[in-house]
Structures are given as structure tokens and as C-alpha cells.
Nucleic acid binder design. Structure first.
Lengths: 227, 227, 227, 227
DNA sequence: TATGAATGAGCCTTCATTCAT
DNA sequence: CATGAATGAAGGCTCATTCAT
């Protein structure tokens, strides 16, 4: 998860006293933030460690003080950025009181606000792009993010079915109806949009709402009256 | 589009006569096939031209006889793999006689058979992964593939609306309901599936059918009787 | 020595019959002409054999039919371009009937017309430029061109001394007074002039006349009346 | 201008303290010296950057720390070797008090001692040899060295004419009478002499004195009594 | 701990040379 | 003889990593 304040590109001895100590503790995080941004923007191979160090305001040598290699830095970026967010979400959705239509809408919008629109969204793009080069990372990501995410979605849909709001669904496949737009949106945002003017017409919030609307009404029982 | 037969790694003097000429014509295609496979598997940067040449059964120097640089090879891969497929498809869909539900199903299944399940599918993954490094390629892809694809989908949906089969749709956003599953499926197939056993449970054909089913019924007029 | 007609850059089967035979004999010469021009213009290393072949209107392979290597081609260029010109000149000067001032003027102007202003002048530039890489060639050139040239000049000066037109000279060093301007002019013409506008102000003929004038009057006996 | 002491090929940990810093400042100069020697000896194209680095006692990568490319290294060699020597010389000659004959002799001998006999002399040979490949360098050399040099010579000759020591001269051409022997001598020294035993008979100092003597007496007024 | 100069393995690219046709 | 497709050794340059300071 990105630090609240971006690392200054150069910080020549500004603060007075116990600054050094605080900096020292913050170093790994600043480096990870810088690496996340650059990896997402340019890919793993095209990002030079010197760039990462510069963006974090330290020298190249310092980076290797905290991360034994570029590859380890990458793994740290992935691990750090996805630290246990699902327990929180699971709990949140468990006590949700509205109908399942509202829950799905709420879940998707929450995801956008907490992940999709933040720099953290870049790591999904990153992991998928570099999966071939780092199968281990991809596998790790699958277990730590994808599977919990699928479970979360499954529980939401199951709730709708159980409450009689959704028609009986093949949940094993239906879950992807919610996951797919999210993955698509991330890839789109980080790949096509930055360099293709015509791609920027896709407004993420409207996109999400539209997808949810289309998908939901296809999941509702036929008898459910349209709004 | 991949050549029908992969280049033999070594083929010492088998055919009799105008062997050279035939080889020369085949070379670019063989190289593009090899490059496609390796780029998709390992990414652009991690693929060495020597590997590509070796896989195509030629030496490193020969590759540069046909492509002035590694980047040009990449561009050629992208261009070749998507060469004018949309005119054909547009014509095909124009004369489609079934209802729009069937047309959408047919379109999605056709896409899977002709693109999704072939090596050509890898280039979308490739382009999105390397978009940051090759904005020019991404832009090219947007114009030559994405936009025509969106137009094609739009025409299909418009047809359904015009025929009274679909409820009125905001086409600018609805088109992504069909595009998103395709992009997702490609990324999944080329990123997570190869290295994550639990990801292989996602059967592409079932996935497509499920998504189409969910999406379609959401698009149909409420009055349309369910099956 | 350059062939009278430059090789056509491409000559696809124009003449009727015994053309092939004539071409065949002319090949080495055409290649040498092409090589001379390119070597002079771009240096030995920067000239590609394919360029030479193309300029001679043949394929790369054909060049190697006549010259076993690029280096041999270079040697052939040097040898061919300086084929025994001094016997002719020696004889010519032996029967010269004017005074030695006129002979020196005549010799220098002849040199300019027969060597300096022709493409042959380029090989001196070439040999001196590449002497470090081809000591053997430089040595060959020294023996075949430089030394005979020095001898020729020496005989001219000796004649002037013998006839009482020139003051007694240290011929071992005086000969360079005539050689130096020639070498300088060649280097200037082939190095600075082609790329430096301000260098083109040096008119070769005026330059030669001026140098001869200055040197001669310095060599004449003080008693010799000025014209 | 060459450093006074050639770089040691390997100097493992000899000095105590701020060793790194001192090395860093010295590096460009050491590299330029090494490059000068090798470029002059073998030509630009035939010199490998790795050789230059090795001769300077560093690794290949280090060279690129100081010079972005081989060509830039070459340019640096040219620039460094000729850096503003003319202002100094102009001033020196302005206050010369002897007659113009002595001034010309002094100028030529100075040139030999400060340029001609030093490694710096090699760059003129280098620039002229590689002018075809690096027109930009040749142009730069023309402006920064040749033209100032011609101006310097012109002022010397003009002084002689103004003081009534030289006969009226076409200075535009006469200047080359002093420049030509210098260029010739450099080319000779760096091209023919190293590989041709018979060329080594040309003693540079004697050559210069002889040329000056011959030229000067041709420039003096006829009325000027010979010494 | 932090620095950044130094390293050197590795990769893209060139081009003289070969040889099957 | 002529061709030009193919080769592969060589070299310029990059950049992750090390280590003396």
C-alpha cells in the first residue's frame, strides 16, 4: 500500500534532528512506493533500479541495503501492496443490511475507491504482465489476492441466492462476471488509457455502474419487477 | 496469424530445387511465429533475439535480414497477427439471420475459436503488458484492433436494440460488457493459468457461455419470456 | 587508375550478345573504381563491401569471386591506381628544354592535372589514413610511389643546380618543399574541403602556382633577376 | 593535451584516503590520453573501447560513465587536445621583438615543440583521416584549429609585410606555405614513418628549418640582402 | 548507514565471408 | 560464373550489483 506522502525526489538536509532516524525506518516503504509506480508505468525489465532509488530520494547503493536484488524488490512490492485487506472486507460485508443488489453495487464501488483508483491497482497489472517471468509471484498473488477475492464475491452472490433475490447461479462461473470487469478496468487504465487518447473516454465509475447494472438484472429472478 | 507448420529446427537439404526461394518467403512468417510464442511467454525484454532465431531455425544474423530491429520484429508480430480480420467479420455478421441472442453467442464463440484459443490471443496480453514501454504499439493496437472491435460489438448490440430484442442501451458503455470478458479471459489464460493450478479450473468455453448468458438476459426486454 | 566510364549502378540485360564476356573482363576494374571512390570518401573500415559491389553493379558474392577479401580489394586498389607512371614522367622530363623554373612549374601542373585532380589522388589520402592499419600497404606505397616521386623531384632540382639556375641545395631536404604542398593539397581536398565550406576557398591551381612561385624564388640564386 | 603521467594499468590500493575522489577527477583525462594514443595508432574504427578502457586502467563500463559513446569520446579527445592554445600564442607573438624572419623561425619551432612532437600531433592526422566518417568533427576542427592557425600565420606574415621585411604577398594563399609543411610533417610522421624505414630519414627539425629557410627567402624583398 | 564509482556479464546489431542454387 | 540468403564472430552499450570510502 502506498505511503501517504510521495517521496521527495531530493531532500538535501532539510529537517533538523531526529530526521535521519525517521527516514531510515521509512526507507523500505519509500522505495516500494517508488518501485510500484515505476514498475507499473514501465514494466519490470524496463525500470532501472537507479530510477527507483532516485525517485525514493536515495542512492542506488542504498536500495541494495534494503533489498538484496531487483527481483526481491519486486516481490516486496507485491507483498506489501496487498497486505490482508480481505479480512476487513469480509467482516464489513457480513453485517451489510441492504438487499443484495445494493450490496453488489456497494462492493464494486468500494473496490474502486479503495483499490481501483489508487496506485495499488497497478500491481495487478504488474503481476499479470510479469507472470511469465515470475511464476512464483503470480502463484503467490493467486493465493493471496485472487482466491480470497473470488471467495468474497462468491459469498456475496450466495447471499443473494439464499435470500431469493438472485436466480440460482453456477457460482463457480458467475463470480467471474464481477471479477472480469475489475481486471479489465485495471488493465485498461494502466495500459491503453495512458497512451491512447480515445481510450480515455471510458469513465471508470460509469463503467462500473453500467456493468453492475447489466449483470445484476441478468441475475435477478425473472419475477423480480424492474425498477 | 501463426503458420500452419512450425519451422523445423534444422532441415538439411531435403527438397530438391528452388528450395532457397521457398525458404525466403517463409522466413518472416516463421520468425514472427517464433517471436509471438516467445514474447508471449517471456515478455518483450526478456526474450533474446537469438532465442527467436533459434526457434525459427535460423541464425541470429538472419533475423536482422528480415527485421531491422527487435522492436520492428515486435511491431511486425502485432501487425501480422491481427491483419484485417474485422472486415471479414463485419461482413459475416451483416448477413446473420438469427435473432440477436444467437448473434451475440455466435460472435463470442467465433472470437474464442479464431482468436482466443489461438496463439494470436497472446498478443493482446503482450500489447497490454508492454504498453508502457511501447506507447506507439499500444496506440496502434487501439486503432487497429480495439476500436474496430468495439465498433463491431456496437453494431451487434445496435441490431438487437433496433429489432426490439434488447432494451434501450447506453451503447458507449454497454459494449464493454462483451469486451471485458474477452480481455479478462486473455489475461487470465496467459498470466495466471500457466503457473497457478487453481486457475486452470476456469474453462474458457463455459466461461464465455456463462458470461454471455448473464449479460444477455440483462439486456433483454423485461417482457421477453425466460427460457 | 579509374576506368573511363563509371560503372552503371544497375544494368539489367540491356546489350545483346557478347556483352557478358566484355563485362566479365571489366569486372575487376569496375570493382576497383567503385572501391576507390568509396574508400576515399568513407575510409576503409566504414565502407561496406556490399556498397562497393552495388556501385559496381554486381552482387556481393561476385566481389569475392575476384578478390579473396576486403583487405585484398584494398591492396588491389592501391596497386592498380598507381601502376608505373614514373617511367613515363622521367622520360618526359629528361627531354624538357626550358629553364628549370619552367620545368618545376610544368611538373607541378602536370601532377595536378594527371593525379591531383583525378580520383587517383584519393589513394594517397587513403594510404596515409589507413597506414596504421595496413603497414604493408604503406610500405608498398612508399617504395612504389613516394620514393620514385622523390627521385623525380630530386632530378629536377639537381638539373636546376647543375645548370646554375638554383643555388646549391641540400637536396635530401629540399625535395620535400615540392612534395609537401602536394600531400597537403590532397589531404585538404579529400578531408577538410568536402565538409567545411570555408575550406573550399582554396583553389588548387592558384595554390600550386603560389607555392611554386614562393619556393622557386627562394631557391634561385640571389643574383637571378626577378621577373 | 596529454596528461603528464600515463595511467598505471592497475593500481590496487596504494594511496590512503580520499582516493576515489582523486581518481574520479583524473579519469576523463586518463581515458582521453589512452584514446588519443590508440586512435592515432589504429584509427577510430579499429580501436575498441575496451582497449581504451584497459589502457586507462579501468573497465569498459567505466568509460561509458564519463563518455556517453565512442564518438563522444573521440570528440572529447579532439576538444581537449586543442583547447584554446591560440589565444596564448597570439599574445606571445604580439610582443615578439625580433625581425620577422626570426619570428617565423620561432613560430615554426614552437609549433614543433608544443604540438608537432607531442602526441597531440596525432589528432590532426586522426581528424583528416576520419573526416569522411565524421564531417561534424572535421568542421569543428576547421573552426577551432585550422582557422585560428591560419589567422595566426596571417598576422605573422602581415607583420613582415608591414615592416617592409617581406615583399607584398597574397596572404590568402601565402599562409598555406607555412601550414602545408606542418600538415605534411604530421601526416608523414604518423603514417609513413612508423612503417617505412626509408621514411625515417626525414628529421623533423631539419625539415622545418629547411622549409622555413626556403620559403622565407622567397618571401623577402629582392632587395633584402641575403645573409 | 549511505554513497556512487566501478565492474563485467549480457544483449542487440553489424558486416565480412561462405556456399547452395 | 553470378547470386544473395545465411552465417557468426565481433563490438558498442546497458545496467544490476559490489564495495571502498
Amino acid at each position: 500500500m502506498p505511503r501517504s506522502q510521495p517521496a521527495p525526489l531530493a531532500d538535501p538536509a532539510s529537517a533538523p534532528g531526529a530526521r535521519r532516524a525517521r527516514r531510515k525506518e521509512a526507507r523500505p516503504g519509500e522505495l516500494i512506493d517508488a518501485a510500484l509506480a515505476l514498475f507499473v508505468e514501465k514494466g519490470f525489465a524496463a525500470t532501472r533500479v537507479e530510477e527507483v532509488a532516485a525517485r525514493a530520494g536515495v542512492s542506488k547503493g542504498t536500495l541494495f541495503l534494503y533489498f538484496p536484488s531487483k527481483e526481491d524488490l519486486f516481490k516486496a512490492v507485491v507483498r506489501e501492496t496487498l497486505a490482508g485487506r480481505f479480512t476487513e472486507w469480509n467482516a464489513e460485508f457480513d453485517v451489510f443490511e441492504g438487499d443484495s443488489v445494493a450490496l453488489v453495487q456497494y462492493a464494486m464501488r468500494s473496490w474502486w475507491e479503495r483499490i481501483g483508483m489508487t496506485p495499488a491497482s497497478g500491481i495487478t497489472k504488474l503481476v499479470m504482465s510479469e507472470a511469465g517471468t515470475f511464476p512464483e509471484i503470480a502463484s503467490f498473488y493467486q493465493q493471496e489476492v485472487i482466491n480470497p477475492g473470488l471467495d468474497l464475491v462468491r459469498r456475496i452472490l450466495q447471499r443473494g441466492v439464499d435470500r431469493g433475490e438472485f436466480r440460482p447461479l453456477d457460482l463457480d462461473h458467475a463470480v467471474y462476471s464481477l471479477i472480469a470487469p475489475m481486471i479489465f478496468l485495471l488493465m485498461w487504465k494502466h495500459s491503453m488509457a495512458p497512451c491512447c487518447p480515445s481510450s480515455q473516454q471510458l469513465d471508470p465509475v460509469t463503467f462500473i455502474d453500467t456493468q453492475v447494472d447489466l449483470i445484476l438484472h441478468g441475475m435477478l429472478k425473472p419475477s423480480t419487477p424492474r425498477r
